[in-house]
């Protein structure tokens, strides 16, 4: 089954219209005072959840908006 995603502006669309933006890792570390290890973990380390994961997507071929959604990585389906 092909992936469809729900853009907050355009609605439900074909997954090929979107660009994946990675896992949602929450707010970035403080600009000042964070150690290089903290930054390295934030930028490079992923949880790679086998199941439902919160992710960033961009409606590249449409309105261009960035948004988060939940996707089941085992079924490659967006959660309603």
């Amino acid at each position: 089954m092909a992936l469809t995603l729900t853009c907050p502006v355009c609605g439900k669309r074909n997954g090929y219209e979107f660009r994946y933006g990675g896992e949602d890792k929450g707010p970035k570390p403080d600009d000042f005072g964070s150690s290089p290890e903290t930054w390295c973990d934030y930028v490079h380390m992923n949880r790679c959840v086998a199941g439902i994961q919160k992710e960033w997507w961009c409606h590249r071929d449409g309105c261009g908006v960035w948004f988060t959604t939940h996707r089941d990585t085992l079924k490659n389906l967006e959660m309603e």
Binding site: C10, R13, N14, E17, H59, D61, G62
Partner: peptide, 10 residues
């Protein structure tokens, strides 16, 4: 306004 692919072009 619609934004999306038309003939596979954004």
């Amino acid at each position: 306004l619609f934004q999306g692919p038309f003939a596979h072009v954004p």
